[in-house]
Design a protein around this nucleic acid. Structure first.
Lengths: 357, 357
DNA sequence: TTGTACGCGTTATCAC
DNA sequence: GTGATAACGCGTACAA
């Protein structure tokens, strides 16, 4: 690719100064029509494409909004060894990669983010990187006017570092006193509502909460679960059921336990994805849902509406969260605003996995 | 937001030169450990985030890969008047925005693009703009090392202009002699296979092809339809059925025609989205598919597997197309390569809308 | 209306 | 190992 043409090239060819070239594109009214035409012609002839970097540097901002995801969200596709395109094509044409893998909740937020960014006339810059310490997020932050981040196991000080230089909003993160904007939902209340439903509507009285407490949102859901349990006079677990070991083996144990009757009547899962996995495992072991045991999720992703049985869950307004992030960022990009926290509402979505018809 | 810290600030605070600061981050081995620590400390204290623009300018490339979509693909959300977040949230929580709207085929390609870009360690820059002449695509092109484009009604000379400055691959576009890389599928052959199925398997012998010829891919599909018709000794239409007027009214006409028996036994739609719309309209008018009439699509999007009846269609390897684009771009970014064209295979996917059980 | 000249924040090439 | 200093391409006061 021959050297990209610059303002200098265009100016020379049009017989004007670089300032005139710049004016022609940025303040067309300021230049005489004939001159303008001259410049445009030269630009066309040279295939002139203005450098975004140079412009960004000169103006102090790039217009772009960033969206960063830590690797934890990446599909396993990523680790797969490099394959030839032919292999990829063949696999894709054969397979039925469906809604179980895409779109996941991250994708729904991302979509909302993109939609709103388009409305704002801003490009979106997508980035990702290793989970911890990685500098990728910093690099991305340096290229955008505002950055939205999916929570990961990134060190908080890294995020705060970034937040000092660029407006940052972080998803699924509870209100905190740091330089970041937070967007989350009323996890605790939502979970209480869900448990209430299982108790009041289906008379279930023994539960197990499945999930890892790594993410703050999950923690809030577990707290909601504990509170609901207490409110109904049920035993309050200290910790969630450990799902890091939710394998075939542990499932078999679960099954035996069910037979002997001393196992929970309902499995309350921290996320839809987890719930769907659980449904699969249960089905494979001949345990019927909801007859033998009830299962619930959290998130309201598409896949949960397509499963058999359909998932009873809590829907989050993901798209709106993405859109909100953009609005915060564009508002903030102007002048410094105090970091804000937003706690959005959710909605209980009744499927058949809880026992409802 | 206080002025973003720069190398100068860091250098001053650390008592070194800006060169040392730069070295500390880019060639850590080249600087004495103690000095390095000094610099890192200063950087941390100041919340230093290197400017992507400046770096891009200095190095001549941004590392980012671009993906551009003309407005024609945008969901109607976009034109909606600005709403408050509360309104958006309420609407989202109530609604069932499902697979009928997302993911569409564009999203599947995009996803493949993103996945492969992550593997390549490159950020993705998403852009969009008005259909014609718009300079948005040029702006985006100026900010990336390579650009992939969804076909629109953009003037070809605009694309060729952009293609001269940056490697560009364009989707759903047949091989051509221009400075762009092309990725498409064997539309013609696929459509023939589809028609063959309807004739050989279901004995259907009168068809109508629905679709607009605007996009080149659709044209190829229509040609395949014509060829197949001819091969089976059936009448060969000169033009597709006009779907720009596929309204309730025209549908009613269609229904009456079916009753009187002089209408096609199968509706061959140019895309899945169109086919799904047709299914809806037919259902609303009490016309049964496939009993009264067969319907087929093209693309193999998720929604086609969820419809009632499921869609018989041709699946395109969308994700692979996105991934291929990235590979082309990263390969090309290095040195100039001759533009290449790729025609990927497809696969006939049998649903129940054609009459199969 | 057009041109000159400087600044934007990095990287890289040299000397030291 | 570290430090001046010159690009990099564009926007824009300011001057002409």
């Amino acid at each position: 690719m021959a050297q990209r043409a610059t303002v200098y090239d265009v100016a020379e060819r049009a017989g004007v100064s670089i300032a005139t070239v710049s004016h022609t594109f940025r303040q067309p009214g300021r230049v005489r029509p004939e001159t303008r035409e001259l410049v445009l012609q030269a630009a066309r002839a040279l295939g002139y494409v203005p450098s975004g970097s140079a412009r960004g540097l000169a103006k102090g901002r790039s217009q772009a909004l960033g969206l960063y995801a830590f690797d934890m969200f990446l599909p396993s596709d990523l680790r797969a060894t490099a394959e030839s395109i032919d292999e990829l094509v063949q696999r894709e044409l054969k397979g039925l990669d469906d809604a179980r893998r895409f779109p996941l909740y991250v994708d729904e937020i991302q979509r909302g983010f993109e939609v709103e960014a388009r409305r704002a006339g801003r490009p979106v810059m997508l980035g990702s990187g290793a989970s911890r310490d990685s500098l990728d997020s910093i690099d991305l932050a340096g290229s955008v006017d505002g950055l939205a981040i999916f929570p990961g196991d990134a060190a908080r000080d890294l995020l705060e570092h970034v937040g000092r230089g660029v407006p940052v909003v972080i998803f699924s993160s509870p209100p905190m006193h740091d330089p970041l904007h937070h967007i989350t939902v009323a996890n605790e209340a939502a979970m209480r509502e869900l448990v209430d439903h299982l108790v009041d509507h289906h008379g279930r009285r023994s539960f197990a909460f499945l999930g890892e407490l790594a993410a703050p949102d999950i923690g809030a859901r577990f707290r909601g679960f504990q509170l609901a349990s207490a409110a109904h006079g049920l035993p309050v677990p200290e910790e969630p059921f450990d799902t890091t070991v939710l394998t075939e083996d542990s499932l078999r144990t679960l099954r035996d336990a069910i037979t002997s009757g001393d196992l929970p009547e309902a499995l309350v899962c921290a996320t839809d994805q987890l719930a769907l996995t659980v449904l699969d495992l249960l089905a494979r072991h001949g345990i019927r849902v909801p007859e033998d045991i009830a299962v619930t999720g959290f998130d309201g992703i598409l896949a949960g509406r397509l499963s058999q049985p359909t998932l009873t869950t809590v829907r989050q307004p993901f798209a709106s969260m993405g859109r909100l992030a953009v609005r915060i960022l564009t508002d903030t990009a102007a002048g410094l605003t105090h970091p804000k926290s937003y706690v959005l509402p959710t909605r209980l979505v009744i499927g058949s996995s809880c026992g409802c018809p």
